[in-house]
Design a protein around this nucleic acid. Structure first.
Lengths: 225, 225
DNA sequence: CAGTTTTGATAGTAAAACTAATAAAACGTA
DNA sequence: TACGTTTTATTAGTTTTACTATCAAAACTG
Protein backbone atom coordinates (compact mmCIF):
# COMPACT_ATOMS: atom_id res chain seq x y z
CA UNK A 1 0.00 0.00 0.00
CA UNK A 2 1.10 3.58 -0.67
CA UNK A 3 3.52 4.85 1.86
CA UNK A 4 4.81 8.36 2.31
CA UNK A 5 2.76 9.84 -0.46
CA UNK A 6 2.18 13.54 -0.29
CA UNK A 7 -0.71 15.45 -1.70
CA UNK A 8 0.14 18.92 -2.92
CA UNK A 9 -2.64 21.38 -3.45
CA UNK A 10 -2.85 24.93 -4.75
CA UNK A 11 -1.81 27.21 -1.91
CA UNK A 12 -4.45 29.73 -2.88
CA UNK A 13 -7.03 27.38 -1.44
CA UNK A 14 -6.02 28.05 2.15
CA UNK A 15 -4.71 30.86 4.31
CA UNK A 16 -2.47 28.60 6.35
CA UNK A 17 -1.37 25.15 5.23
CA UNK A 18 -3.59 22.72 7.14
CA UNK A 19 -1.17 19.86 6.53
CA UNK A 20 1.53 21.66 8.48
CA UNK A 21 -0.07 21.74 11.92
CA UNK A 22 -1.97 19.55 14.32
CA UNK A 23 -5.00 21.82 14.32
CA UNK A 24 -4.88 21.98 10.53
CA UNK A 25 -4.93 18.21 10.25
CA UNK A 26 -7.77 18.05 12.74
CA UNK A 27 -9.73 20.52 10.60
CA UNK A 28 -9.25 18.32 7.53
CA UNK A 29 -10.09 15.13 9.32
CA UNK A 30 -13.17 16.42 11.08
CA UNK A 31 -14.51 18.53 8.25
CA UNK A 32 -14.67 15.38 6.14
CA UNK A 33 -16.66 13.66 8.85
CA UNK A 34 -18.91 16.66 9.42
CA UNK A 35 -19.65 17.27 5.72
CA UNK A 36 -20.63 13.63 5.48
CA UNK A 37 -22.79 13.80 8.60
CA UNK A 38 -24.81 16.93 7.96
CA UNK A 39 -24.19 17.86 4.31
CA UNK A 40 -22.72 20.94 2.68
CA UNK A 41 -25.56 23.40 3.35
CA UNK A 42 -25.86 22.67 7.06
CA UNK A 43 -22.10 22.64 7.61
CA UNK A 44 -20.79 25.68 9.49
CA UNK A 45 -17.41 26.60 10.93
CA UNK A 46 -19.06 26.97 14.31
CA UNK A 47 -20.27 23.37 14.29
CA UNK A 48 -16.87 22.20 13.11
CA UNK A 49 -15.18 24.24 15.86
CA UNK A 50 -17.42 22.65 18.48
CA UNK A 51 -16.65 19.21 17.07
CA UNK A 52 -12.91 19.69 17.29
CA UNK A 53 -13.08 21.73 20.50
CA UNK A 54 -11.55 24.89 19.18
CA UNK A 55 -12.83 28.36 18.38
CA UNK A 56 -14.50 29.44 15.18
CA UNK A 57 -11.78 32.03 14.65
CA UNK A 58 -9.07 29.38 14.65
CA UNK A 59 -10.66 27.70 11.65
CA UNK A 60 -10.93 31.00 9.85
CA UNK A 61 -7.17 31.29 10.13
CA UNK A 62 -6.87 28.22 7.88
CA UNK A 63 -9.69 28.70 5.39
CA UNK A 64 -11.46 31.81 4.19
CA UNK A 65 -14.85 30.13 4.23
CA UNK A 66 -16.53 26.77 3.82
CA UNK A 67 -16.44 26.88 0.05
CA UNK A 68 -12.63 26.98 0.09
CA UNK A 69 -12.43 24.24 2.68
CA UNK A 70 -14.77 22.15 0.57
CA UNK A 71 -12.82 22.84 -2.59
CA UNK A 72 -9.66 21.86 -0.73
CA UNK A 73 -11.20 18.49 0.12
CA UNK A 74 -12.50 17.93 -3.39
CA UNK A 75 -9.11 18.87 -4.83
CA UNK A 76 -7.55 16.39 -2.45
CA UNK A 77 -9.85 13.74 -3.84
CA UNK A 78 -9.00 14.59 -7.45
CA UNK A 79 -5.32 14.40 -6.61
CA UNK A 80 -5.83 11.19 -4.69
CA UNK A 81 -7.59 9.58 -7.67
CA UNK A 82 -4.72 10.72 -9.90
CA UNK A 83 -2.28 9.10 -7.55
CA UNK A 84 -4.30 5.89 -7.40
CA UNK A 85 -4.44 5.73 -11.18
CA UNK A 86 -0.66 5.99 -11.40
CA UNK A 87 -0.22 3.53 -8.59
CA UNK A 88 -2.69 0.98 -9.91
CA UNK A 89 -1.62 1.14 -13.55
CA UNK A 90 2.10 1.01 -12.85
CA UNK A 91 3.95 -1.31 -15.23
CA UNK A 92 0.85 -1.94 -17.28
CA UNK A 93 1.28 -1.24 -20.96
CA UNK A 94 -1.98 -2.22 -22.59
CA UNK A 95 -4.14 0.94 -22.62
CA UNK A 96 -7.35 -1.10 -22.56
CA UNK A 97 -6.29 -2.73 -19.33
CA UNK A 98 -5.28 0.69 -18.05
CA UNK A 99 -8.73 2.11 -18.74
CA UNK A 100 -10.35 -0.79 -16.95
CA UNK A 101 -8.25 -0.04 -13.91
CA UNK A 102 -9.10 3.65 -14.18
CA UNK A 103 -12.79 2.84 -14.22
CA UNK A 104 -12.33 0.59 -11.22
CA UNK A 105 -10.50 3.42 -9.47
CA UNK A 106 -13.31 5.91 -10.26
CA UNK A 107 -15.89 3.56 -8.86
CA UNK A 108 -14.13 2.19 -5.80
CA UNK A 109 -11.77 5.13 -5.22
CA UNK A 110 -10.39 4.46 -1.81
CA UNK A 111 -11.28 0.86 -1.10
CA UNK A 112 -8.56 -0.58 1.10
CA UNK A 113 -6.18 2.24 0.41
CA UNK A 114 -5.11 3.69 3.69
CA UNK A 115 -2.86 6.63 3.05
CA UNK A 116 -2.68 9.63 5.28
CA UNK A 117 -4.19 9.11 8.67
CA UNK A 118 -6.03 12.42 8.92
CA UNK A 119 -7.90 11.83 5.65
CA UNK A 120 -10.59 9.19 5.60
CA UNK A 121 -10.71 8.50 1.87
CA UNK A 122 -13.74 6.31 2.07
CA UNK A 123 -15.83 9.01 3.75
CA UNK A 124 -14.38 11.59 1.36
CA UNK A 125 -15.54 9.43 -1.53
CA UNK A 126 -19.08 9.54 -0.16
CA UNK A 127 -18.96 13.32 -0.04
CA UNK A 128 -17.75 13.45 -3.63
CA UNK A 129 -20.57 11.17 -4.71
CA UNK A 130 -23.26 13.20 -3.05
CA UNK A 131 -22.03 16.76 -3.48
CA UNK A 132 -18.67 16.87 -5.21
CA UNK A 133 -19.89 18.94 -8.14
CA UNK A 134 -20.77 21.83 -5.84
CA UNK A 135 -17.06 22.59 -5.75
CA UNK A 136 -17.19 24.00 -9.28
CA UNK A 137 -20.83 24.96 -9.80
CA UNK A 138 -20.30 28.40 -8.39
CA UNK A 139 -20.77 31.98 -9.47
CA UNK A 140 -17.05 32.81 -9.35
CA UNK A 141 -16.01 29.86 -11.47
CA UNK A 142 -13.99 31.92 -13.95
CA UNK A 143 -12.03 33.81 -11.31
CA UNK A 144 -11.28 30.65 -9.36
CA UNK A 145 -10.34 28.80 -12.51
CA UNK A 146 -7.98 31.65 -13.29
CA UNK A 147 -6.33 31.01 -9.92
CA UNK A 148 -5.74 27.41 -10.93
CA UNK A 149 -8.08 25.91 -8.36
CA UNK A 150 -9.27 23.17 -10.70
CA UNK A 151 -5.94 22.02 -12.02
CA UNK A 152 -6.10 18.76 -10.09
CA UNK A 153 -9.31 17.81 -11.85
CA UNK A 154 -7.95 18.86 -15.23
CA UNK A 155 -4.73 16.93 -14.76
CA UNK A 156 -6.61 13.82 -13.77
CA UNK A 157 -8.86 14.15 -16.82
CA UNK A 158 -5.82 14.72 -19.06
CA UNK A 159 -4.24 11.56 -17.71
CA UNK A 160 -7.33 9.50 -18.50
CA UNK A 161 -7.78 11.18 -21.87
CA UNK A 162 -4.26 10.11 -22.82
CA UNK A 163 -5.11 6.49 -22.20
CA UNK A 164 -8.33 6.87 -24.19
CA UNK A 165 -6.44 8.42 -27.10
CA UNK A 166 -4.01 5.53 -26.99
CA UNK A 167 -6.83 3.02 -27.29
CA UNK A 168 -8.43 4.81 -30.20
CA UNK A 169 -6.57 7.80 -31.65
CA UNK A 170 -9.50 8.45 -34.00
CA UNK A 171 -11.95 9.01 -31.18
CA UNK A 172 -12.85 12.69 -31.21
CA UNK A 173 -13.78 13.22 -27.56
CA UNK A 174 -11.12 11.79 -25.27
CA UNK A 175 -11.37 14.47 -22.59
CA UNK A 176 -15.15 14.54 -22.66
CA UNK A 177 -15.22 10.79 -22.23
CA UNK A 178 -12.72 10.99 -19.40
CA UNK A 179 -14.67 13.58 -17.44
CA UNK A 180 -17.92 11.83 -18.27
CA UNK A 181 -16.72 8.48 -16.94
CA UNK A 182 -15.73 10.18 -13.70
CA UNK A 183 -18.98 12.10 -13.36
CA UNK A 184 -21.05 9.12 -14.38
CA UNK A 185 -19.41 6.93 -11.78
CA UNK A 186 -20.47 9.35 -9.06
CA UNK A 187 -23.88 10.19 -10.53
CA UNK A 188 -25.00 6.63 -10.98
CA UNK A 189 -23.88 5.49 -7.54
CA UNK A 190 -25.93 8.41 -6.23
CA UNK A 191 -28.89 7.65 -8.48
CA UNK A 192 -28.86 3.95 -7.59
CA UNK A 193 -28.96 4.86 -3.91
CA UNK A 194 -31.43 7.72 -3.99
CA UNK A 195 -33.18 8.12 -7.34
CA UNK A 196 -33.10 4.60 -8.79
CA UNK A 197 -35.44 5.34 -11.68
CA UNK A 198 -32.74 7.54 -13.20
CA UNK A 199 -30.45 4.59 -13.79
CA UNK A 200 -30.45 0.86 -14.51
CA UNK A 201 -27.74 -0.20 -12.13
CA UNK A 202 -28.22 -1.38 -8.61
CA UNK A 203 -25.83 -0.93 -5.73
CA UNK A 204 -25.97 -2.89 -2.52
CA UNK A 205 -24.20 -1.19 0.32
CA UNK A 206 -20.70 -0.48 -0.90
CA UNK A 207 -20.88 -2.88 -3.81
CA UNK A 208 -20.68 -0.77 -6.93
CA UNK A 209 -19.75 -3.51 -9.39
CA UNK A 210 -22.78 -2.88 -11.60
CA UNK A 211 -21.68 0.72 -12.05
CA UNK A 212 -18.24 -0.50 -12.99
CA UNK A 213 -19.68 -2.94 -15.51
CA UNK A 214 -21.80 -0.24 -17.08
CA UNK A 215 -18.89 2.16 -17.45
CA UNK A 216 -16.80 -0.58 -19.01
CA UNK A 217 -19.49 -1.27 -21.57
CA UNK A 218 -19.87 2.43 -22.35
CA UNK A 219 -16.13 2.85 -22.80
CA UNK A 220 -15.83 -0.27 -24.90
CA UNK A 221 -18.65 0.68 -27.27
CA UNK A 222 -17.53 4.27 -27.59
CA UNK A 223 -13.95 3.34 -28.34
CA UNK A 224 -14.69 0.52 -30.76
CA UNK A 225 -13.32 1.23 -34.20
CA UNK B 1 -45.60 27.63 -31.22
CA UNK B 2 -47.08 26.07 -28.12
CA UNK B 3 -50.17 27.84 -26.95
CA UNK B 4 -52.12 27.34 -23.79
CA UNK B 5 -49.83 24.73 -22.34
CA UNK B 6 -49.96 24.30 -18.63
CA UNK B 7 -47.22 23.07 -16.38
CA UNK B 8 -48.40 21.09 -13.39
CA UNK B 9 -46.01 20.57 -10.53
CA UNK B 10 -46.17 18.68 -7.26
CA UNK B 11 -48.16 20.80 -4.84
CA UNK B 12 -45.84 19.82 -2.01
CA UNK B 13 -43.24 22.13 -3.54
CA UNK B 14 -45.07 25.28 -2.53
CA UNK B 15 -47.25 26.59 0.27
CA UNK B 16 -49.45 28.59 -2.07
CA UNK B 17 -49.69 28.00 -5.81
CA UNK B 18 -47.52 30.69 -7.39
CA UNK B 19 -49.24 30.26 -10.75
CA UNK B 20 -52.56 31.32 -9.23
CA UNK B 21 -51.75 34.91 -8.29
CA UNK B 22 -50.05 37.96 -9.64
CA UNK B 23 -47.49 38.06 -6.86
CA UNK B 24 -46.84 34.34 -7.31
CA UNK B 25 -46.10 34.81 -10.99
CA UNK B 26 -43.86 37.72 -10.18
CA UNK B 27 -41.95 35.53 -7.72
CA UNK B 28 -41.41 32.91 -10.43
CA UNK B 29 -40.41 35.39 -13.06
CA UNK B 30 -38.03 37.38 -10.91
CA UNK B 31 -36.51 34.48 -9.03
CA UNK B 32 -35.39 33.07 -12.37
CA UNK B 33 -33.74 36.36 -13.21
CA UNK B 34 -32.20 36.73 -9.75
CA UNK B 35 -30.83 33.18 -9.58
CA UNK B 36 -29.19 33.82 -12.93
CA UNK B 37 -27.80 37.17 -11.82
CA UNK B 38 -26.26 36.29 -8.49
CA UNK B 39 -26.27 32.49 -8.28
CA UNK B 40 -27.87 30.06 -5.86
CA UNK B 41 -25.70 30.72 -2.79
CA UNK B 42 -26.04 34.51 -2.85
CA UNK B 43 -29.76 34.40 -3.58
CA UNK B 44 -31.95 35.40 -0.63
CA UNK B 45 -35.65 36.01 -0.20
CA UNK B 46 -34.85 39.47 1.03
CA UNK B 47 -33.06 40.39 -2.20
CA UNK B 48 -35.88 38.88 -4.22
CA UNK B 49 -38.42 40.83 -2.16
CA UNK B 50 -36.56 44.07 -2.83
CA UNK B 51 -36.39 43.25 -6.55
CA UNK B 52 -40.12 42.73 -6.83
CA UNK B 53 -40.98 45.45 -4.34
CA UNK B 54 -42.72 43.30 -1.80
CA UNK B 55 -41.93 42.07 1.70
CA UNK B 56 -39.85 39.07 2.58
CA UNK B 57 -42.79 37.58 4.47
CA UNK B 58 -44.96 37.63 1.35
CA UNK B 59 -42.52 35.32 -0.42
CA UNK B 60 -42.41 32.99 2.56
CA UNK B 61 -46.13 32.50 2.12
CA UNK B 62 -45.46 30.91 -1.27
CA UNK B 63 -42.29 28.92 -0.64
CA UNK B 64 -40.89 27.48 2.55
CA UNK B 65 -37.32 28.44 1.61
CA UNK B 66 -35.04 28.98 -1.33
CA UNK B 67 -34.39 25.29 -1.84
CA UNK B 68 -38.08 24.65 -2.52
CA UNK B 69 -38.34 27.64 -4.80
CA UNK B 70 -35.29 26.41 -6.68
CA UNK B 71 -36.65 22.89 -6.90
CA UNK B 72 -39.89 24.33 -8.19
CA UNK B 73 -38.02 26.07 -11.00
CA UNK B 74 -35.95 23.00 -11.83
CA UNK B 75 -39.07 20.84 -11.86
CA UNK B 76 -40.64 23.35 -14.17
CA UNK B 77 -37.68 22.90 -16.48
CA UNK B 78 -37.90 19.10 -16.40
CA UNK B 79 -41.58 19.33 -17.22
CA UNK B 80 -40.94 21.89 -19.91
CA UNK B 81 -38.35 19.61 -21.57
CA UNK B 82 -40.84 16.74 -21.39
CA UNK B 83 -43.40 18.91 -23.10
CA UNK B 84 -40.93 20.00 -25.77
CA UNK B 85 -39.98 16.39 -26.48
CA UNK B 86 -43.62 15.49 -27.05
CA UNK B 87 -44.21 18.60 -29.08
CA UNK B 88 -41.11 18.23 -31.26
CA UNK B 89 -41.42 14.48 -31.87
CA UNK B 90 -45.12 14.54 -32.66
CA UNK B 91 -46.01 12.34 -35.63
CA UNK B 92 -42.50 11.02 -35.92
CA UNK B 93 -42.29 7.26 -35.90
CA UNK B 94 -38.62 6.43 -36.42
CA UNK B 95 -37.09 6.18 -32.92
CA UNK B 96 -33.66 7.18 -34.21
CA UNK B 97 -35.07 10.43 -35.52
CA UNK B 98 -36.89 10.85 -32.24
CA UNK B 99 -33.69 10.51 -30.24
CA UNK B 100 -31.99 13.08 -32.45
CA UNK B 101 -34.77 15.50 -31.69
CA UNK B 102 -34.53 14.69 -27.99
CA UNK B 103 -30.83 15.45 -28.02
CA UNK B 104 -31.50 18.68 -29.82
CA UNK B 105 -34.11 19.51 -27.20
CA UNK B 106 -31.68 18.79 -24.34
CA UNK B 107 -29.07 21.03 -25.86
CA UNK B 108 -31.15 23.93 -27.06
CA UNK B 109 -34.05 23.54 -24.65
CA UNK B 110 -35.95 26.74 -25.04
CA UNK B 111 -34.62 28.26 -28.21
CA UNK B 112 -37.46 30.20 -29.82
CA UNK B 113 -40.10 28.58 -27.70
CA UNK B 114 -42.05 31.29 -25.99
CA UNK B 115 -44.61 29.72 -23.73
CA UNK B 116 -45.76 31.27 -20.52
CA UNK B 117 -44.93 34.93 -20.19
CA UNK B 118 -43.77 34.83 -16.57
CA UNK B 119 -41.19 32.11 -17.27
CA UNK B 120 -38.15 33.03 -19.28
CA UNK B 121 -37.13 29.58 -20.49
CA UNK B 122 -33.87 30.72 -21.96
CA UNK B 123 -32.68 32.18 -18.64
CA UNK B 124 -34.02 29.13 -16.82
CA UNK B 125 -31.94 26.95 -19.12
CA UNK B 126 -28.82 28.87 -18.08
CA UNK B 127 -29.62 28.24 -14.43
CA UNK B 128 -30.05 24.53 -15.11
CA UNK B 129 -26.72 24.42 -16.90
CA UNK B 130 -24.84 26.09 -14.12
CA UNK B 131 -26.54 24.79 -11.01
CA UNK B 132 -29.45 22.51 -11.86
CA UNK B 133 -28.03 19.50 -10.06
CA UNK B 134 -28.14 21.34 -6.73
CA UNK B 135 -31.87 20.61 -6.75
CA UNK B 136 -31.25 16.97 -5.91
CA UNK B 137 -27.81 16.91 -4.31
CA UNK B 138 -29.21 17.52 -0.87
CA UNK B 139 -29.13 15.88 2.51
CA UNK B 140 -32.90 15.19 2.58
CA UNK B 141 -32.94 13.53 -0.82
CA UNK B 142 -34.74 10.39 0.37
CA UNK B 143 -37.50 12.24 2.21
CA UNK B 144 -38.07 14.58 -0.70
CA UNK B 145 -38.01 11.75 -3.17
CA UNK B 146 -40.62 10.03 -1.02
CA UNK B 147 -42.79 13.12 -1.46
CA UNK B 148 -42.53 12.72 -5.22
CA UNK B 149 -40.54 15.90 -5.79
CA UNK B 150 -38.45 14.37 -8.56
CA UNK B 151 -41.21 12.76 -10.57
CA UNK B 152 -40.87 15.25 -13.38
CA UNK B 153 -37.26 14.29 -13.90
CA UNK B 154 -38.04 10.59 -13.69
CA UNK B 155 -40.91 10.86 -16.14
CA UNK B 156 -38.76 12.73 -18.60
CA UNK B 157 -36.03 10.10 -18.30
CA UNK B 158 -38.59 7.31 -18.72
CA UNK B 159 -39.84 8.94 -21.89
CA UNK B 160 -36.36 9.10 -23.36
CA UNK B 161 -35.52 5.59 -22.16
CA UNK B 162 -38.53 4.28 -24.07
CA UNK B 163 -37.20 5.72 -27.29
CA UNK B 164 -33.77 4.27 -26.56
CA UNK B 165 -35.26 0.85 -25.89
CA UNK B 166 -37.11 1.07 -29.17
CA UNK B 167 -33.91 1.75 -31.07
CA UNK B 168 -32.07 -1.14 -29.45
CA UNK B 169 -34.09 -3.43 -27.15
CA UNK B 170 -30.89 -5.31 -26.29
CA UNK B 171 -29.22 -2.25 -24.81
CA UNK B 172 -28.98 -2.82 -21.07
CA UNK B 173 -28.91 0.75 -19.81
CA UNK B 174 -31.70 2.78 -21.39
CA UNK B 175 -32.48 4.90 -18.34
CA UNK B 176 -28.84 5.48 -17.50
CA UNK B 177 -28.20 6.61 -21.05
CA UNK B 178 -31.24 8.87 -20.95
CA UNK B 179 -30.21 10.62 -17.75
CA UNK B 180 -26.61 10.72 -18.88
CA UNK B 181 -27.45 12.42 -22.16
CA UNK B 182 -29.37 15.06 -20.23
CA UNK B 183 -26.63 15.59 -17.64
CA UNK B 184 -23.93 15.52 -20.27
CA UNK B 185 -25.67 18.17 -22.32
CA UNK B 186 -25.62 20.53 -19.35
CA UNK B 187 -22.18 19.54 -18.06
CA UNK B 188 -20.39 19.98 -21.33
CA UNK B 189 -21.98 23.31 -22.14
CA UNK B 190 -20.78 24.39 -18.69
CA UNK B 191 -17.33 22.88 -19.17
CA UNK B 192 -16.91 24.42 -22.61
CA UNK B 193 -17.72 27.82 -21.14
CA UNK B 194 -15.82 27.63 -17.88
CA UNK B 195 -13.52 24.61 -17.66
CA UNK B 196 -12.69 23.88 -21.29
CA UNK B 197 -9.97 21.34 -20.55
CA UNK B 198 -12.65 18.99 -19.21
CA UNK B 199 -14.22 18.58 -22.61
CA UNK B 200 -13.42 18.59 -26.33
CA UNK B 201 -16.35 20.62 -27.55
CA UNK B 202 -16.40 24.34 -28.06
CA UNK B 203 -19.36 26.62 -27.68
CA UNK B 204 -19.55 30.12 -29.07
CA UNK B 205 -22.14 32.22 -27.32
CA UNK B 206 -25.39 30.32 -27.55
CA UNK B 207 -24.18 27.99 -30.29
CA UNK B 208 -24.11 24.54 -28.76
CA UNK B 209 -24.02 22.52 -31.97
CA UNK B 210 -20.76 20.79 -31.07
CA UNK B 211 -22.34 19.48 -27.88
CA UNK B 212 -25.26 18.21 -29.92
CA UNK B 213 -22.92 16.48 -32.37
CA UNK B 214 -21.03 14.81 -29.56
CA UNK B 215 -24.17 13.51 -27.90
CA UNK B 216 -25.40 12.17 -31.23
CA UNK B 217 -22.16 10.27 -31.71
CA UNK B 218 -22.26 8.88 -28.20
CA UNK B 219 -25.85 7.73 -28.62
CA UNK B 220 -25.15 6.23 -32.01
CA UNK B 221 -22.12 4.26 -30.88
CA UNK B 222 -23.75 3.06 -27.69
CA UNK B 223 -26.89 1.90 -29.44
CA UNK B 224 -25.19 0.22 -32.39
CA UNK B 225 -25.93 -3.50 -32.51
C1' DC C 1 15.36 30.86 27.65
C1' DA C 2 13.90 34.74 24.63
C1' DG C 3 11.38 35.60 20.65
C1' DT C 4 8.09 34.42 17.40
C1' DT C 5 4.25 32.00 15.94
C1' DT C 6 0.04 29.67 16.94
C1' DT C 7 -3.96 28.96 19.78
C1' DG C 8 -7.80 29.89 22.86
C1' DA C 9 -11.26 32.74 24.69
C1' DT C 10 -14.22 36.43 24.42
C1' DA C 11 -16.76 39.74 22.12
C1' DG C 12 -18.94 41.94 18.65
C1' DT C 13 -21.26 43.14 13.84
C1' DA C 14 -23.97 42.51 9.69
C1' DA C 15 -26.62 39.73 7.15
C1' DA C 16 -29.53 35.58 6.50
C1' DA C 17 -33.37 32.84 7.58
C1' DC C 18 -37.00 32.78 9.38
C1' DT C 19 -41.95 33.87 12.42
C1' DA C 20 -45.72 36.73 14.18
C1' DA C 21 -49.14 40.24 14.21
C1' DT C 22 -52.01 43.45 12.26
C1' DA C 23 -53.70 46.79 9.01
C1' DA C 24 -54.80 47.69 4.23
C1' DA C 25 -56.16 46.25 -0.20
C1' DA C 26 -58.38 43.28 -3.48
C1' DC C 27 -61.79 39.99 -4.66
C1' DG C 28 -65.89 37.24 -4.82
C1' DT C 29 -70.60 36.98 -4.39
C1' DA C 30 -75.49 37.80 -2.39
C1' DT D 1 -72.74 47.90 -3.77
C1' DA D 2 -71.93 46.23 0.49
C1' DC D 3 -69.97 42.32 3.29
C1' DG D 4 -67.06 38.81 4.32
C1' DT D 5 -63.05 36.45 2.93
C1' DT D 6 -58.69 36.06 1.06
C1' DT D 7 -54.39 38.14 -0.11
C1' DT D 8 -50.79 41.51 0.53
C1' DA D 9 -47.97 45.14 2.91
C1' DT D 10 -45.68 46.72 6.85
C1' DT D 11 -43.35 46.43 10.89
C1' DA D 12 -40.99 44.16 14.20
C1' DG D 13 -38.65 40.71 16.28
C1' DT D 14 -35.60 36.05 17.03
C1' DT D 15 -32.09 32.89 16.03
C1' DT D 16 -28.32 31.47 13.33
C1' DT D 17 -24.64 32.25 10.12
C1' DA D 18 -20.61 34.32 8.58
C1' DC D 19 -17.46 36.73 9.64
C1' DT D 20 -13.61 40.25 12.21
C1' DA D 21 -10.95 42.02 16.16
C1' DT D 22 -8.44 41.76 20.36
C1' DC D 23 -5.41 39.96 23.57
C1' DA D 24 -3.53 36.67 26.69
C1' DA D 25 -1.81 31.96 27.08
C1' DA D 26 0.59 28.20 25.12
C1' DA D 27 3.72 26.07 22.05
C1' DC D 28 7.47 25.69 19.24
C1' DT D 29 12.11 27.51 17.41
C1' DG D 30 16.87 28.93 17.25
Amino acid sequence: MPVGISIKLNSGLYLRDPQATKLGKSIIKNSILLFEEIGFEAFTFKKLATKIKTGEASIYRYFENKHYLFLYLVSWYWEWVSFLIDYNTKNIIDPKRKLKIIINTFVFASKDNPSIDYVNESVLHKIIISEGTKAYHIKDIDEENQEGFFLNYKQMVAKVADVIAEINPQFEYPRALASNLFEMANDHIYFAKHLPRLTDVKVKGEDYTEVEKMLELFAKKLLAK
